[in-house]
Design a protein around this nucleic acid. Structure first.
Lengths: 177, 177
DNA sequence: TAATGCTTGTAGCGACTGCTACATTAATGT
DNA sequence: ACATTAATGTAGCAGTCGCTACAAGCATTA
């Protein structure tokens, strides 16, 4: 086994914290509610983690891993043009089961936008992950075209996420026509 | 005069609250800091407003009005194709002086995404305003084309906002190529 | 001048925040 | 069996949250 018992327990806690943050977001993610969600006490949360920042960083990391895994499952077998890939990505990213990730993602972005040193690097890393996923699937004539199309893909998808977030789902969908 | 003294004072307070929210966001927008920013006391905030929700609603409304006014100032005199309008909009929306509005906008979206009854209608209304601005400026052959291009415009701009928020400014810019 | 109602300060409530000191129990190695 | 360390509970600190009861100041009007 590679994981010590402490690490195992830490990991189990992080899993349940991830569930809770996905379900309720970062705003109500304070120690006591998180502890209850993890079936433990705030005291123990701060036993396994140095402070709340570290705990949240680990939780968001875990959420990002789950998302990355899900995206890998949806990788296309063949290179795709931008339009097709965009529709494909939108097709599964807006399933109900992914919406909690999108909610957390926007919340993360809103904190990164203010330059919070906890959230900014995590958000940037996730964004780069999205970008890499796109670049790996895009059919492109050149590296520049690939980079440009990946940027277009990311921007279009993030735009649809934000527009849906404010309740204009049909506007987001119309943008695909 | 159409404004009673009470209304005038309310309005003056809202102006200073708007400044504070634009500068620091919604997370630290609690009564005592807001009161200090408005040069008054939390007691008086709740004298002029029924509760915190009403106070925040008025503040966000004011912020939206400022934004709407600024956008009206940047209306084009002639109908524009989608590409040109997108570059034009990005050109001034990403000036430093607009970034605070974008930060609040993302924060608003993140709360609307969770269905908060305070933020959802405000966010949707602002989104519709953006959409109307676009439709009024777009050159289009048909109403359907106009609606579609306005949707594309909104999605692209919101996408650029979110991508910049997570620190990938150059990716957002590259999407315009 | 007296009385009424608008405006504001003071003080505090109960709940929550992140975090910690202290003590106790449980497990582990010798 | 014993000593040491790891794990956990209890209790609480100082601070903030939204909000309110009470009273005092103030201005207008009768």
């Amino acid at each position: 086994m590679e994981l010590s018992k402490t690490e195992e327990r830490r990991s189990a806690i992080v899993d349940r914290l991830a569930d809770h943050v996905l379900a309720h977001g970062l705003v109500p993610a304070s120690l006591r509610p998180l502890a209850k969600a993890a079936g433990t006490s705030d005291r123990m949360l701060l036993y396994y983690f140095a402070d709340k920042s570290e705990l949240l960083a680990a939780t968001l990391q875990r959420i990002a891993e789950r998302m990355t895994g899900a995206m890998a499952d949806h990788a296309a077998t063949e290179p795709q043009p931008l339009d097709a890939l965009q529709k494909r990505l939108a097709g599964f990213l807006f399933e109900d089961r992914f919406w909690p990730y999108m909610c957390v993602w926007i919340e993360l972005a809103s904190r990164a936008a203010r330059g919070d040193p906890l959230y900014t690097p995590i958000a940037a890393a996730i964004g780069q992950g999205f970008l890499a996923w796109g670049e790996a699937q895009l059919a492109a004539d050149s590296d520049e075209a690939r980079a440009r199309d990946a940027a277009k893909l990311l921007v279009a998808i993030e735009g649809m996420v934000l527009v849906r977030a404010i309740g204009l789902r049909e506007v987001a969908d119309r943008s695909l026509d």
